[in-house]
Amino acid sequence: MTESIPVSQEEQNLYNRLRAGDMSALTTLYHENRTPVHSLVTRNSGSRHDSDDILHEALIILWQQIRTGRFELRARMGTFLYATARNLWLRRLSRRRKEPTADLSALEITDGSVSPLEMMVETEDSDAVRRSLDKLPDPCRSLLIAFYWEELPMKEIAEKFGLANAATAKAKKYQCKEQLKKILQRIS
């Protein structure tokens, strides 16, 4: 069980802004955590560009975790960012070296940090799906993003896309997924 640590009022305000969907709050976190992440990446065969890219990605993941309610402010957001960036960078390094995809369990998955699914996003399979998604027309693409990324419940998806109800949204999501699979088979 993770112990809660006291957080500052500033941190709390930042968290509230992110939870409310304020993306500009990420810039503050970016500047606060740039130096340690840069140091981590450049010490481990990375460039400044790599460190920026990794930090951007960690920020997006943090934001997503906050919005879906998975991240609670029991620890500093900087700690989460550092752990996420570290895992992402290790994953990317192993890819660059063309080593076999590391076993997810071998990676350090800290509490409140990256889930195994996040670790999958850079696999070749997921890359093929990403490319297929580019070819998938809206609203299917947006609907799948709302479901798999934003993790909105079916009721909210129905409201967002103007569908009759959750059951309709569920059927629509199934159709879109099948459409995506067809594109995936075509480009594979």
Binding site: I61, V121, D127, D134, L144, I145, W149
Partner: peptide
């Protein structure tokens, strides 16, 4: 794979 690909796209 689908979930990861969609998340990759969104990220």
């Amino acid at each position: 794979a689908i979930a990861a690909g969609v998340r990759r796209h969104a990220i």
